[in-house]
Amino acid sequence: MSEPAIWPAPWVRAALDLAVLASLADGPLHGYAIGQALAARGFGLLKGGSLYPVLSRLEEAGDVEASWVEGQGGPGRREYELTAGGRERLERDLASWRDLGETLTTMGTGTVRNG
């Protein structure tokens, strides 16, 4: 990451899979555009070496699919899109993160959480 993120690096690392999935929620993007979208949301400007292994992993898991798009005056690039399974995973994982956040908040304020 060359531009600093607004959250600690371990948090960014832990949330990266989910952040990449979320960046594709509005439609397909190519790798560089995903990096720009994440930077705009405060994840810092990820180098390709951090971003593409995540995309590769998500593609292997069937959460995203990619198709080649011809380059205009440059190399072709792959456009990534959420699959139905990826969209389900995004919703499920977001719910888990919200749950985690609420749990930490209640722990931090000393409230006993029921259920």
């Binding site: 560089y32 390709g48 070496g49 990619a66 440059g74 190399p75 072709g76 690039r77």
Partner: peptide, 23 residues
């Protein structure tokens, strides 16, 4: 092939070398 192709496309978009972007 996909992994290598992605590195070229990304480096071209970022205007940097593959070594700078990927180590």
């Amino acid at each position: 092939r996909t992994i290598v192709g992605d590195t070229h496309a990304h480096a071209a978009d970022a205007g940097r070398s593959v070594q700078e972007e990927f180590g």
